Simulated assay, not measured.
Amino acid sequence: MNRDVILTCAVTGAGDTADKHPDLPITPQQIADSAIEAARAGASIVHLHVRDPETGGISHSTEHFREVVLRIRDADVDAVINLTAGGGGDWTPHPDDPTRGGEGTDMQTPAERHAPIGELLPDICTLDCGSLNFGDMIYLNTADWLREHARLVKEAGVKPELECFDLGHVWFARQLIEEGLIEGDPLFQLCLGIPWGAEADTETMLAMRNKLPANAQWSAFGIGRSQMPMVAQSILLGGNVRVGLEDNLYLSKGVFATNAQLVEKAATIAENLGGRVLTPAETRKKLDLRQP
C-alpha cells in the first residue's frame, strides 16, 4: 500500500464534454481558476489541457496554455504543473476515402505537440506511449514519433509522465528507457477504462503495474463511475492517483462535480485507507523535479 499519495487533478481534458457539464472549465481563466481551486483542495499536481474559448473544442494554442500557466504560477497556492503534450493525434478515416482524415481528425507533428512544453517548461508533461482504438477513432502515435517526442522532452529538461493506455504501451515505454530517452526514475500513468484500451479493473491494473521498472513511480486512473474505485485500488497496490473532470463529470449519480470536490473525495479515500496526500513541495522532492 502507498501511504504517501501524489494526487493529480486532470482539470478539463479535450474530450467532447463541454455540453455535458454546465460548469466545465473552458476559457483559460476558467481552467486556471479550477486548477487553483483543486490545489487549494489538496491536489499535488494539476494536469492541464486547453480548449477553444468560443466552442469548448480542442485547442493546442500556446497562448492559451501560457495564460493558464501564468495564472497558476501567480496564484497564492502552490501546484505542480503537468501540461498535456498528447494532442494532435486523432484520426478518423474519411468514409469515402480511408487514406484521408474525416470529420474529427486532428493531427500534429511531435514538434508541434511539444511547442507549448518547450516554451513554458512545466514541471511535467505527458508522453502518450502508443497508438490506440480510442472509442470510434484512432489515436495515432507511432514508435518513431514517440522517440522524437521523448528526445524533445528530454532536451527541454521536463519530466515526462509516461501515459499507458494498454499493456503494449508499458512495453514500449520500457524500450524508450532502455534507449536512454527517459532519464531518472520513470513516472508512469496507467490510463484505465477508455474504450478500447486497458479495462478499469484490478486484474488489468495489477498486470500493468507488474510490468513497470523496479524504480518507477506510478499512478492510475479510471474514467466515469470507475474513478473512485480505481483511486482506492491504486493506493492499495502501491500507486498514486488521478481524478478530475477530464475523466469523470459526476460526484455521485446525477450530481455534477467540481474538480475541488473530486480532489476532496479522493483525499478522503486516501486518508480512510491510512494514507495522506503529499503537498506539491513533497511531490517535487519525491519525483526529483526542479524546485520553483
Rank of each mutant, 00 (worst) to 15 (best):
R284D: 06
T258A: 06
L278Y: 00
A257I: 07
T258P: 02
K285N: 01
L273P: 03
V263I: 15
R242W: 00
N259I: 04
T268C: 03
V241L: 03
G275E: 11
L287C: 10
D288K: 15
D288W: 08
L245T: 09
A281Q: 15
N272Q: 15
G244W: 09
R276T: 14
K285R: 13
R242L: 03
K265A: 08
V255T: 13
A260H: 02
Q261R: 11
P280F: 02
Q261D: 14
S252A: 10
K286Y: 07
A267Y: 08
S252F: 00
R290P: 08
T258C: 08
V277D: 07
K265E: 11
D288N: 15
S252G: 08
A266W: 07
L289S: 11
I269M: 06
A260V: 02
L249E: 09
N259H: 05
A260L: 05
A260N: 04
K253Y: 05
R276I: 04
L273I: 07
V241I: 15
L251W: 10
L273W: 00
A270C: 14
Q261H: 10
N248E: 03
N272P: 08
L278S: 01
A270G: 09
R276L: 09
K286T: 08
N248R: 12
T258D: 06
G275K: 13
L249M: 05
D247P: 12
L245R: 02
A281R: 15
N272S: 14
A281T: 15
L278W: 00
T268M: 09
I269S: 05
G275P: 04
T279W: 09
G274A: 10
V277G: 01
K286M: 05
K253H: 09
E246V: 05
T268L: 11
V277R: 10
T268K: 13
T283D: 10
V277H: 03
I269Y: 04
P280R: 02
R276G: 12
L289A: 12
N259P: 10
R242K: 08
K286S: 06
Q261A: 15
K286E: 12
A267T: 10
V255E: 12
D288Q: 14
E271P: 01
A260K: 07
A267C: 00
V243M: 06
G244N: 01
L273C: 11
T283Q: 11
Y250D: 01
D247A: 13
E246Q: 12
R290K: 14
A260R: 02
L287V: 04
K265N: 03
V263N: 13
D247E: 14
V277F: 03
F256V: 08
D247W: 12
Q261P: 02
T283C: 04
I269F: 03
L262A: 01
V243E: 02
D247T: 07
N272R: 14
R242D: 01
E264R: 14
K286V: 09
E271R: 15
A270W: 11
L245D: 01
Q261V: 04
E271F: 11
V243L: 08
E246G: 12
L289D: 11
R290H: 12
R242S: 02
L278G: 00
L262H: 00
P280E: 08
T279K: 14
R290Q: 13
E246R: 09
E246N: 04
S252W: 05
L273V: 07
R284G: 05
L289R: 12
F256C: 00
A267Q: 06
V243W: 00
